[in-house]
């Protein structure tokens, strides 16, 4: 515990860095997956292809991906950009399936009714499909948040600062308390961001709670990813 009290400012600093590393990929993944998931639902021929690509992407081990991306797209190896890109890719891989399912769950009659009322395709998407798919999208977003925050710690082994730096530093200097504080801080951030997402969902979608039927644990969602 002594270590924690005397290094609180260091931990606080890394919490901020960790947030800067894990929040952008979550947002990127969400923004990218929603249209892709919609396309996978709307154009049935593309569904198998898109979901297979996501499955393959998700199967790629993280450290080798981080080390290959610089050669592929030219991001510097030891940069937050490399990390954010890799995390966003995993987020998309996890989220597209959920998004496709969420849009698929929108009641077909409601969709037809909105068309009959003269909604354009765009207004139908923003005004009907997106809000109705919202609870499903939120469930997917929560899984992405938890896995991204946890995965961001491996940045430490390629020399990018994050809460993972407490693991590598604590390991090299033989300070278990330092590693523990990193583990706990990481999990607290995940819980906090998750709570924030739920709160945001309540505010944006006051009419709906997360759909019971679709509620899956993070592991089950990953299983769906490889088990398709």
């Amino acid at each position: 515990m002594n270590w924690v009290w005397s290094n609180l400012d260091r931990i606080g600093e890394l919490v901020v860095v960790h947030l800067a590393l894990s929040v952008p990929p979550v947002i990127l993944a969400f923004v990218i997956s929603v249209p892709i998931g919609w396309a996978a639902w709307r154009f049935r021929w593309s569904r198998g292809l898109l979901l297979s690509v996501c499955g393959i992407l998700y199967a790629i081990p993280s450290l080798p991906l981080l080390l290959t991306l610089p050669g592929l797209v030219g991001v510097p190896l030891r940069s937050p950009a490399n990390m954010i890109l890799a995390l966003a890719l995993y987020g998309v891989a996890l989220m597209v399936r959920t998004a496709a399912d969420a849009f698929g769950d929108v009641d077909g009659d409601v969709r037809l009714a909105s068309t009959a009322m003269g909604f354009s395709a765009w207004r139908r998407f923003t005004g009907v499909e997106l809000p109705l798919a919202g609870p499903g999208l939120l469930a997917g977003l929560r899984v992405v948040i938890v896995s991204t925050v946890s995965l961001a710690t491996i940045s430490a082994v390629i020399g990018v600062q994050s809460l993972g730096s407490l693991f590598t530093d604590g390991f090299q200097r033989n300070i278990p308390a330092e590693i523990w504080s990193g583990v706990i801080a990481t999990m607290l951030i995940a819980v906090a961001l998750d709570a924030l997402a739920v709160l945001g969902g309540r505010l944006l979608m006051p009419w709906a709670r997360a759909p019971r039927r679709r509620r899956r644990g993070i592991v089950e969602q990953e299983l769906a990813e490889v088990g398709a």
Binding site: F167, I179, G182, V183, E222
Partner: peptide, 11 residues
């Protein structure tokens, strides 16, 4: 699953 793998390994 939320447990960071690197943390568990080093501990």
């Amino acid at each position: 699953r939320a447990l960071p793998t690197l943390g568990l390994l080093t501990i």
